[in-house]
Amino acid sequence: MVHYAVLALGGMGLVLGFLLSAAAKVFFVETDHRVEELEKALPGANCGGCGYAGCGSFAEALAAGTADAGGCTAGGSAVTEQLCAILGIELVKNTRLTALVRCSGGARARNKFAYQGIEDCHAAMRIAGGYKECPYGCIGLGTCMKSCPFSAISLVDGVAVVDHERCTGCQTCIASCPKNVIIPVPYYADVNVACSSRDRGGSLRRICDIGCLGCRICEKTCIHDAIHIVDNLAAIDFEKCTGCGDCAEKCPRKLIVDAKLDRGPRLMEG
């Protein structure tokens, strides 16, 4: 009895094995071996930051030569280096991006009414453009938080906050935000303005305890001519900014974020 079982299964295994190897020869399809290597080098989060459906289709496009090797914002310079090595092309320095929520309001920004609907910013937008008095600010229902493939966004006091170390710059959140309050900024920028209100100081003061009043103190403080008030809002020219942090210190509303204060200056890679 045991012989039968061993013989039958062994025979089956043998026959199927031969069949499989024969099929592998007969149905052999020429594939670019680089696609596999490229896919292995990519992060595999399928975030879509490169503009392709996922890491797989990005790898195919890379091998076909239709995609830019620096396209993977999520992987950053380390991945780009690997991709370039596989493709045999020269590395061009990649500039890392991170997302910035240009709002510090949250609990400090007044509400127009009490919202009790679906926990989603797009849904809240449908009712009178959101329940915040400020038409520019973060609604704070966390649509970006849910969209982030890298869990880099959290809600702190009703406003979205990006963890810049986790953020890979894939820009998924930027597309998800109905208020367009999130923008891409250079990772190496130490100083950022966390407000997007273009209201005048007087009317803004009534609806938000922290928004930018356009007082021009930062503009006068900056010795590098890097920060200017444009449409009642401070804007930083990252080409000129040295990240000294003087403006952040002088800002009466404390809405210019100096990231150096809690982590030390970011060092340029490579």
Partner: peptide, 14 residues
């Protein structure tokens, strides 16, 4: 062959 008791293994293989 009267080896129905091997069906799980055989089926997985097939």
């Amino acid at each position: 062959f009267g080896i129905e008791y091997m069906e799980t293994v055989a089926f997985i293989l097939v």
